[in-house]
């Protein structure tokens, strides 16, 4: 793999990381902690929304984030021909 390709591959990886980690930060630290009082004014069923994000929602999102990353990277590895045979 050429230096230029490697750079491009790494840059795309970093972009994925930035996007996914922003969502990671948003659901836990923003929804679950910083803005929990504002979100608690809304409800889903018996849950106050902020409380739900802190004790349930953020965990579900974490799981989804990892599997999105797995998919994105498997595809990226193939595109740049650096996947494991």
């Amino acid at each position: 793999m050429s230096k230029k390709d490697l750079k491009q591959y790494w840059k795309t990886n970093l972009r994925y990381l930035a996007i996914l980690l922003s969502i990671w930060f948003l659901v836990s630290y923003c929804f679950g902690i910083l803005f929990v009082d504002q979100l608690n004014q809304f409800r889903i069923g018996g849950f106050k929304l902020g409380f739900w994000f802190a004790q349930q929602g953020s965990i579900y999102v974490f799981v989804i984030l990892i599997f999105i990353y797995v998919r994105l990277m498997n595809k990226l590895d193939k595109d740049y021909d650096v996947d494991e045979k």
Partner: peptide, 24 residues
């Protein structure tokens, strides 16, 4: 109560960091 959320988020969110930044 709500304060217990630190364990719930803290002990699961680390796996996102593991999967994205360390393990591979």
């Amino acid at each position: 109560g709500y304060d217990g959320s630190v364990f719930l988020m803290g002990w699961t969110g680390g796996y996102v960091l593991l999967a994205l930044l360390l393990a591979p």
